[in-house]
Write a protein that binds this DNA or RNA. Structure first.
Lengths: 204, 204
DNA sequence: TTTCAATGGGACGACGTTCATCACATACGC
DNA sequence: GCGTATGTGATGAACGTCGTCCCATTGAAA
């Protein structure tokens, strides 16, 4: 039943994803084009549409892998350290992971689905999974606080770290001097958590 | 010496900017196209290129106005309030301003110049101008700290607020539910500044 | 040899950008 | 006052790109 190619469907899928990842790493979302992918892997543009529904589908798949990769990095922070050290380590891990291929990571924020389309369930789940790791580290630093408070703080930290790396890599608005996203992340995490802790003991 | 149109060059420029702003507000950067602008203002695509160098030039102009608009909003916070109240008010002003037309504000982060091209000087100056307003409010909250420390803290706060609003409006990763970006911004600013203050007095 | 899924590649309608051409409001000669 | 020359602002076709679709063709398996 006729297969002409020298690649199995899985191999073909991998080939496409590899080429796409490389293109995005080099030129951001703008650098990606169905025709260029096809050129690089020696297939025709139409073949891509046998494997992926469209480019958005392909891009979402890559984004999923990026999130998985980050989750794996976050899991590497030693669990025996103090919560504060863990929090700082996770911030540095985030920074380290995302700054290796900034344009690739920026994909998560450059890419928008066409109006009306919703994000797949598995995508949201991957995000939640990462958020939970953050909450797990923040939680012991906020004893006697409601679950909502912990979640809120995890969100603030996550968003804050994202904001710093985002501005640092967006060459267009290098207000945040490129000299040091690292120190800024450290500062955010330590000061914020200290502030949270402080306000928990209003009796000075 | 021949002017056929019913619009002066300035009027035409305004027409183009208005139509573009509307398009972006509705459909983000993707919704913008030279041909669609031309259609809306009843000119031909070529005419745009008599007024702007290219679409990037046009977009940068809109971005400049957005930054100016934010600066104007930040200037409205009452200077007689306490520094802490001012900081919180500025955070809310940012959130308020940017969430009126989220897709328009997102332009600042969606839009990237083609590889190699640098941002114009006036653009960087506008950004610096906003950053200085933040520093001015943060500074009194950090007495006896070096200018670098103040700058760093201003950067952290700016990036943090950006991160929260960014994640809140990026419908794709609505980890941070949009309902509560306000409380998150309040929390970030108050906790962070408290933390900074706390670590300044290590002698408990 | 038959069968049928995988593939190629042209077609379509968009896009940004360029540029030779045109139309016309003004300036000037009479 | 009229006719004509002037030169600028606007045009829209053209070029090369893009994502996506679709069907004729291919070639390995039955």
């Amino acid at each position: 039943m006729g297969r002409r190619s020298s690649h199995t469907p899985e191999e073909l899928r991998e080939l496409i994803l590899e080429a796409s990842t490389e293109l995005i790493s080099e030129g951001g979302l703008t650098g990606l084009s169905a025709r260029e992918i096809a050129r690089r892997i020696n297939y025709s543009p139409g073949t891509l549409y046998n494997v992926f529904e469209n480019l958005d589908d392909l891009v979402l798949t890559i984004e999923g892998r990026l999130i998985d990769g980050l989750a794996a990095e976050l899991d590497k922070v030693p669990a025996q350290d103090s919560p504060m050290e863990q929090a700082l380590a996770m911030g540095r891990a985030y920074l380290n992971y995302t700054s290796k291929k900034p344009k690739l990571w920026n994909l998560l924020f450059e890419h928008h689905l066409p109006a009306g389309r919703e994000v797949p369930v598995w995508y949201q789940q991957k995000l939640d999974s990462v958020m939970q790791r953050v909450e797990a580290v923040v939680s012991p630093l906020m004893p006697r606080r409601s679950a909502e408070d912990v979640t809120r703080s995890a969100h603030v930290l996550w968003a804050g770290v994202h904001g710093i790396t985002s501005l640092a890599t967006a060459d267009k608005l290098a207000v945040v001097t490129s000299e040091g996203a690292g120190p800024l992340v450290d500062l955010l995490i330590s000061a914020y958590l200290q502030g949270i802790n402080q306000s928990a003991k209003p009796a000075r």
